[in-house]
């Protein structure tokens, strides 16, 4: 990441989303630096997923500013445009293409032309194969490359989805509950993988598992009722009276 950049990669200011009067996000503001990893915590309904929806263009905010790299107004773009800008998203429940092989999943995710006609005429290149091989190594699925994604275990699907995100070569990864349903070992491995990714890219991780958040060892933002309740190092946030009250419990 050598290009000259503004200090903040992602900038949310005063973002409000309401569904029939219920405010899923309430004047939310957040800033994320380049190659920063941020953990988002908060009780159910705090607006974590809605925030992801707003950043990725799935939900339009009723008001507020969402800027990427200081110049792209994400509120006026759709999902595909935002993805092409370099924002990748992993869903809460792992979503991969069950009927495709692992390597086809990665192939479809590889950065490149996205139009239907170029897809129709595209040829498989060696360069693509090498990229896929590298990604398979990284998410430890080399042995399964020919298997259908639908046959993978839950944890493997999570990793495949992260691999697909990496294949997009995004500047920012939004990762929703990557550790859900994983064994302790898998959770630790996932934390390692994310820390490794964060060396070159920005990552936003939404997570409930406090052990996992602790392992990530990054700045934490706690959301509550659609706005930021507390922000800072995990120890500071988890010592916050309000956070304890609404989320962590005494």
């Amino acid at each position: 990441m050598t290009e000259p950049v503004t200090p903040t990669l992602l900038y949310l200011d005063n973002v409000t989303v309401s569904f029939d009067g219920f405010k899923a996000l309430n004047a939310l503001s957040l800033a994320l630096d380049h190659t920063e990893m941020r953990a988002i915590i908060g009780p159910n309904g705090a607006g974590k997923t809605t925030m992801m929806d707003v950043i990725t263009g799935k939900t339009r905010p009723n008001q507020g500013t969402v800027l990427f790299e200081g110049k792209h107004d994400l509120t006026s773009l759709d999902e595909a445009e935002i993805a092409e800008l370099g924002i990748g998203r992993k869903f809460q429940t792992p979503t991969v293409f069950d009927m495709h092989s692992i390597e086809d999943n990665l192939l479809l995710a590889l950065k490149g032309e996205r139009g239907p006609f170029s897809a129709l005429l595209s040829r498989h290149t060696n360069q693509e194969s090498e990229r896929i091989d590298a990604l398979l190594e990284r998410v430890r699925l080399t042995a399964h490359r020919q298997r259908r994604a639908g046959e993978l275990s839950h944890g493997q699907k999570q990793w495949l989805e992260i691999g697909m995100l990496l294949a997009q070569e995004p500047k920012l990864l939004l990762v929703d509950e990557p550790a859900a349903g994983m064994t302790d070992q898998e959770t630790a491995d996932t934390a390692d993988l994310l820390r490794d990714i964060a060396k070159t890219r920005s990552v936003v991780v939404v997570e409930h598992d406090m052990t996992f958040v602790r392992e990530l060892d990054v700045k934490v933002t706690c959301l509550h009722e659609g706005s930021v309740l507390a922000e800072g190092p995990l120890d500071a946030v988890s010592a916050n009276e309000r956070v304890i009250e609404v989320y962590l419990g005494r």
Binding site: E79, A80, R89, F91, L108, P116, A119, L121
Partner: peptide, 25 residues
């Protein structure tokens, strides 16, 4: 059989995933 076909199946099975990968579904 082309990559277009793979994208179509991807759309069939997980439309929003495909969209978030940057495909104009």
């Amino acid at each position: 059989n082309s990559k277009l076909g793979k994208v179509l199946v991807a759309i069939r099975d997980a439309e929003s995933r495909t969209r978030f990968l940057g495909y104009r579904v």
